[in-house]
C-alpha cells in the first residue's frame, strides 16, 4: 500500500501542469473596496459594507464551446476580509488550449443535499443555513442611512437550490490571454441598484434572492490588463 502511494507520487511528480492564476478584486467606484468604511452614495446617502462572502464553484475551461478542463472538487469560498481567499492557482493539465473560463456563483443542488461537507464547505464557515438546509451562495451585509431596519442594517443572504428558487448563476468570460484570470466586482454598481427603502434583507430562498443573484452575476467583470 505504502509502496503504491509512493509510486503514485513519483508518477504524479512527473505529470506537468500549467498553473493558471485566479484572482478577484473588489472596488467601490473604481477604488479598492475597504470593508467597514463609509462611502458616499448618489452624492447624499452613505453606505458601509461589513461582510462580503460568496462561493465560486465548478470552475472549467472551454475551447470553441467544448469543456476541455474541469477543476476537481471545485469549491472556493471568497471572503473580502481574507485576502488569501481572493486568489488561488488552478492546476490545469499541461497543453490544454482554452479560450473561455466558466464557473458557478453558488453551490449546486447535488452538493446541497449531500450532508455535512468539509474545507470551504464546512458549516462552521457560516455560509450554511441552519433552520432550513442549504448553502448561502452570496452574503452581503452592511449599513446605509437609507435603510429603515434596526441600526440601518442591510443583510442579503442569497441561496436556494430547489425549484422554483434555485439561484445558482453560471458566469463565463472569453479570455483575451491565458494563464491569468483576473475578475473584478464594483460594489457601487450592485449597491446603486438596490432600493434599501423597499428591501433591506433577504434571508431565505425567494424570487428576490434569484433576481439579486442574477443581477450580481452580471456585475462580475473580467479585468483586462
Amino acid at each position: 500500500m505504502v509502496f503504491c502511494v509512493f509510486l503514485l507520487s513519483l508518477y504524479s511528480s512527473h505529470g506537468q501542469n500549467d498553473t493558471v492564476h485566479f484572482e478577484i478584486n473588489f472596488t467601490f467606484n473604481k477604488e479598492d473596496l475597504q470593508l467597514n468604511k463609509y462611502y458616499l452614495l448618489n452624492g447624499t446617502d452613505s453606505v458601509e459594507i461589513n461582510t462580503l462572502k460568496f462561493y465560486i464553484s465548478a470552475i472549467s475551461l472551454l475551447h470553441n464551446g467544448e469543456t476541455v478542463w474541469k477543476e476537481a472538487n471545485s469549491f472556493h469560498l471568497i471572503d473580502a476580509e481574507l485576502n488569501k481567499s481572493t486568489k488561488f492557482d488552478l492546476a490545469v493539465k499541461e497543453g490544454v488550449i482554452y479560450d473561455k473560463f466558466r464557473f458557478n456563483l453558488g453551490i449546486d443542488s447535488l452538493t446541497n443535499v449531500s450532508g455535512a461537507m468539509g474545507n470551504d464547505l464546512d458549516p462552521s464557515k457560516n455560509m450554511y443555513w441552519t433552520w432550513q438546509s442549504g448553502y448561502i451562495n452570496f452574503k452581503l451585509e452592511g449599513r446605509s442611512n437609507v435603510c429603515l431596519a434596526r441600526k440601518n442594517e442591510f443583510k442579503f443572504h442569497l441561496g436556494g437550490y430547489q425549484f422554483p428558487y434555485n439561484c445558482i448563476q453560471q458566469v463565463e468570460f472569453t479570455l483575451p490571454q491565458p494563464d491569468l484570470i483576473h475578475l473584478q466586482i464594483d460594489l457601487a454598481e450592485i449597491i446603486s441598484e438596490l432600493r434599501f427603502g423597499e428591501l433591506d434583507h433577504i434571508m431565505s430562498p425567494s424570487f428576490s434572492a434569484m433576481e439579486l443573484s442574477s443581477s450580481i452575476a452580471k456585475k462580475i467583470r473580467l479585468r483586462i490588463p
Partner: peptide, 26 residues
C-alpha cells in the same frame, strides 16, 4: 426543513431558543 441527517444538528445548535450557539465557537 432539513434534507440530510448530517446537517440536522445545525438547526437546534443555532436556534436562539434551543442551544443558541455557533458551529465555529463549538
Amino acid at each position: 426543513a432539513v434534507n440530510h441527517l448530517e446537517v440536522q444538528a445545525l438547526a437546534p445548535i443555532t436556534h436562539p431558543k434551543e442551544m443558541d450557539e455557533s458551529m465555529n465557537h463549538i
